[in-house]
Simulated assay, not measured.
Amino acid sequence: MTTYVYETIPQQPGEKSTYFELKQSMQDAPLTQHPESGKPIRRVILGGYGVLKSGGAPAPKSGAADGGCGCGPAGCCN
């Protein structure tokens, strides 16, 4: 089972979206209504991380294992 993030779709000006997580099979269609309130919802697409590289030398490491914090070209977010 995969955990997906959903948000409510505001129906009134100034109304804010609310977010919630739901475990679903990857084969299940995205929900269109909140399971409890019936409000319209949409699945939120979240960005992944990492570098995909085919062939050649392995991608350079970064992160806590090599002394960096794990983000940015120098390994730190300053």
Score class of each variant (00 low, 15 high):
14 G>W: 01
62 S>K: 09
39 K>W: 12
37 S>K: 07
44 V>G: 04
28 D>N: 15
16 K>S: 07
17 S>R: 14
71 C>A: 13
60 P>C: 05
7 E>L: 00
34 H>A: 10
35 P>K: 02
13 P>T: 06
3 T>E: 14
45 I>W: 02
59 A>D: 02
66 D>C: 11
32 T>W: 00
4 Y>S: 00
70 G>M: 12
20 F>W: 14
58 P>I: 10
10 P>I: 03
71 C>E: 04
67 G>E: 08
67 G>C: 08
59 A>K: 12
73 P>F: 13
56 G>T: 00
20 F>E: 07
57 A>I: 09
9 I>T: 11
47 G>K: 10
74 A>E: 08
13 P>W: 00
7 E>R: 15
66 D>M: 14
12 Q>E: 14
62 S>R: 07
13 P>G: 01
47 G>S: 13
56 G>D: 01
4 Y>D: 00
38 G>Q: 00
43 R>S: 00
64 A>W: 04
13 P>D: 11
74 A>L: 14
15 E>R: 05
49 Y>V: 07
4 Y>T: 03
44 V>E: 07
22 L>D: 02
49 Y>M: 11
47 G>P: 04
59 A>S: 14
58 P>V: 14
65 A>H: 05
76 C>M: 05
28 D>F: 13
24 Q>H: 02
5 V>S: 05
17 S>W: 03
25 S>G: 09
45 I>A: 14
65 A>D: 13
38 G>S: 04
32 T>P: 00
6 Y>H: 08
65 A>G: 14
51 V>F: 09
6 Y>F: 15
70 G>A: 04
25 S>E: 08
33 Q>D: 00
29 A>G: 05
25 S>F: 10
44 V>S: 03
71 C>I: 10
59 A>T: 15
64 A>T: 14
64 A>P: 05
18 T>C: 00
69 C>N: 15
49 Y>Q: 13
14 G>L: 13
67 G>N: 04
41 I>N: 05
21 E>P: 03
32 T>M: 04
34 H>G: 08
51 V>I: 15
78 N>R: 11
73 P>N: 05
53 K>Q: 13
43 R>L: 15
3 T>I: 13
2 T>L: 13
68 G>D: 11
46 L>M: 14
56 G>N: 04
68 G>F: 11
27 Q>D: 12
63 G>A: 10
78 N>Q: 11
51 V>P: 01
51 V>Y: 01
15 E>T: 05
52 L>V: 09
64 A>N: 08
1 M>Q: 04
8 T>K: 12
7 E>P: 00
71 C>W: 04
69 C>R: 09
